[in-house]
């Protein structure tokens, strides 16, 4: 008797189990339901919370030696922007390029490459981890973002640093954003040199961001303007970056 009952109970459970497996087989449809997205998003909040709890604000990413440099550093995303404005700037070696720093700052300013090179600089050999799964080691030289922000003065309302870029992927301009904690991290630099030479177009000439404790898509290339904002919900599709607007995590620490 007990056995019969148990068998039926077990049969039910097995069916339920199989049904849920089948469901995950059609994961595309399940993944497209908004409530599934919202539920799964909770993990992002937890990851962010945990990493913030664990992380001393200024823990440094490991720095490597010259010997560790990757012989072939992969370039991803845009590698040769076709945007007219960018083409024109590239044509005379970015002599006319200016980095505009604006938004919630005390003294909005424009910087040429020569200006940036006169500011303090930092060189670091770090590992670049792409969200796709590969890693490369490169040497970067640039202006610490903190030094630049100190020059322009950050207004107290500001919470995020936005990077507006020159490249368009399909229909949207690339852009990114980081929090002020990361912006003032000593290894967060605006790099103009890579492996001892001026940044190539494939790697983001004339200027790209390095945020060493996050994944590659945070490290915007072809930076044209920096804007300090209180919120980014009105920019792009409101998620803080080109890839974030396409479902990737804003805090790309894992």
């Amino acid at each position: 008797m007990t056995e019969r009952l148990d068998r039926r109970g077990f049969g039910l459970r097995l069916t339920a189990g199989l049904a849920s497996l089948l469901l995950s087989g059609c994961g595309d449809e399940v993944s497209e339901r908004p409530w599934v997205r919202h539920l799964l998003d909770k993990a992002e909040d937890m990851n962010y919370w945990l990493q913030r709890q664990l992380l001393p604000h200024h823990a440094l990413a490991r720095e490597y030696d010259e010997a560790d440099l990757s012989p072939q550093f992969r370039a991803n995303g845009s590698t040769d922007p076709e945007d007219e404005d960018y083409r024109r700037l590239a044509a005379n070696d970015f002599a006319d390029w200016r980095l505009e720093v604006a938004g919630l700052v005390e003294r909005p300013q424009r910087f040429s490459l020569a200006d940036l090179r006169t500011l303090p600089s930092r060189t670091q050999i770090t590992r670049h981890d792409c969200v796709e799964g590969w890693s490369c080691i490169g040497k970067w030289t640039g202006t610490p973002l903190a030094a630049l922000l100190q020059r322009v003065g950050v207004r107290p309302e500001a919470r995020f640093v936005m990077f507006h870029c020159a490249d368009t992927i399909s229909v949207d301009r690339y852009y990114e954003s980081i929090g002020l904690g990361d912006a003032f991290h000593p290894q967060t630099i605006l790099a103009y040199d890579m492996n001892g030479a001026p940044l190539s177009v494939a790697h983001g000439a004339p200027l790209r961001v390095r945020v060493e404790r996050q994944l590659g898509y945070k490290m915007a290339k072809y930076v044209m303007a920096i804007e300090l904002v209180e919120s980014f919900s009105h920019i792009g599709r409101g998620h803080g970056g080109f890839w974030e607007d396409r479902g990737y995590e804003w805090y790309a620490g894992i």
Binding site: G27, S31, L39, A43, W243, G247
Partner: peptide, 23 residues
């Protein structure tokens, strides 16, 4: 496709499933 979640190529969603169930 039958071995992956979601079935089609969709890295962002794969990562969301992965990290949620990792917790």
């Amino acid at each position: 496709a039958w071995a992956t979640l979601p079935g089609m190529q969709w890295l962002a969603m794969g990562r969301r499933w992965h990290f949620f169930f990792a917790w």
